[in-house]
Design a protein around this nucleic acid. Sequence first.
DNA 1: CATATTTGACCGCT
DNA 2: AGCGGTCAAATATG
Length: 336
Amino acid sequence: MASVVDGNGGSGGLVVTELGHIKELVTQLEVHLGGSSSDLCKHLASQISSITERSISLLITTSSLHGARKRSADAIPLSDASDAPFVKATKKRKTMGKKRREVTMSSAGGGADHPADDGHSWRKYGQKEILGAKHRRAYYRCTHRHSQGCAATKQVQRTDEDPTFFEVVYLGDHTCVQRAAAAAAVAAAGQAAADAQAHEHNDSPGTRSLLQSLSSSLTVKTEGPAVEPEQQLLLGWDAPAPAPFCFSSTPVTASGCLVPEHSPFSAPSTSDNWGVSPATSDSNRVVSFPPFEVALYRSSSCGDDVQFGFEEVMSALDRPDGFLDDLDIDVPSFFE
DNA sequence: CATATTTGACCGCT
DNA sequence: AGCGGTCAAATATG
């Protein structure tokens, strides 16, 4: 399932969070069981199922990290998300202790040779054949490494199982101010959506790939090649919220990431909890986000930004250092 | 010309 | 010694 791994041992915390969600959902389900809305019950049930799967997967992934942390070649994980060893210290900078986050995502629209844009600008600095892997791994660093000393890097590698998916490992936090890119992405998405709306049967490849790119950039790959929209929720997003990102001016429904047109927020019942960023210059385009993780974990990395690229949100899902460490559990022993 | 990518060499770790 | 990660010169791109 959701292959998002926090290398600082936050998985236990995530699992706890997920289990909390499950409990909450079960409670709701109980309330509605005798009631009128069988649809609601179905919805809740599928939420529970989906979150449970995520939790299980988290546990599996984590235990494979714990148990087979030596070399990647012999540690073929159940999910394809953890085949890389921990980043090792090399020449210049110690990378040990960097935050590590793994995401599996589909290729940018139409099977490009790179995953969808994540809102940051990256500069490739190397690639390597990796033992035991079918595809080479590419290494990227933040474009602003020199100008702003941003130490964020990422590694991108096609998965063995499905070459249209990429495993992306993010290392370190962005310390750069990267608002332009995110704003551009949002604006572009809004523009593309506006275009699509204007010409109803717009099939222009440019627009399509832009939208595809956007939507796939917002998808955390879960278990298999075929991903249910229900399962594409990012870890920890609150239950009834259908999508991690909502662009109020984008009427396109793609992969459950974008919302129906007239409702600014598609979350039916909890939308009033959502934080709303007021800040795109165009008042028509508003980025909204569920309050929970973003409010709680939105950390330091990019300052006071009001918009969230994919990376920002993934970052927001991370706990600040030390936070919830007390809740960290020894997953393998927890399982036994 | 500035900036990005490619690619073999290099380095540190196991 | 082998591997993965990075450097940096050469090359490509705009």
